[in-house]
Amino acid sequence: MIRLKDITKYYTNKFIKTFVLRDINLEIKEGEFMTIMGPSGAGKSTLLNIIGMLDTASEGEYQFFDEPVHSLNEKQRTSLFHHNIGFIFQSYHLIDEMTVYENIETPLLYKKVKSSERKALVADLLDRFNIVAKKDLFPNQLSGGQQQLAAIARALIVKPKLILADEPTGNLNSKQGTEIMELLKKLNEEEGTTIIQVTHSEEKASYSDRTINLMDGWIEE
């Protein structure tokens, strides 16, 4: 599904190149649950953002299914992104001015899905995640775990093939964290959604099939 070849990322600041990622070669198959681990500043999030097409590599090739992402233009990349990728963040990133329902609905609006269909899809997800009662609340009225649930529901609403989770449990207590991890595991196993997560925690990593370690921008096998 994803093939990274010699991906390198650096920032140039006053003629000094700061490398964040160096010669990353990585293959991820459809249906995999993979963890990227490593200390702060190792380049975990940057790698995730490149895979998620929010960022571009300075050098190297990126194949997503059959598409050469590195040579696509902005518009093509956005379209590819829309149809395949859902993001989950450590700090949830729900839109504060919107209710849970509206937050979950928003990606569908951008995909121009019809109203009746939208209602069905959102209702289904609310039901599955057991947050029907919370649908009219605003993010600041929810606990962290509930917010992350809503955020995951929002990521899933467009039925992405790939979910990218940047420390999804980082802000949660251990009980909530475990619940979220079990939910992700279930998604991976029952629906075959490919998941890539970034985490510091060995315990959270244990939910996944495979773990890679990043150190100073290099993969340590």
Binding site: H93, E97, P107, Y110, K111
Partner: peptide, 16 residues
């Protein structure tokens, strides 16, 4: 700004 960022990851185009 945050809202803009989130919307972008949710698939909002610049024009929208």
């Amino acid at each position: 700004a945050k809202e803009v960022g989130i919307r972008k990851t949710l698939g909002a185009k610049k024009k929208q």
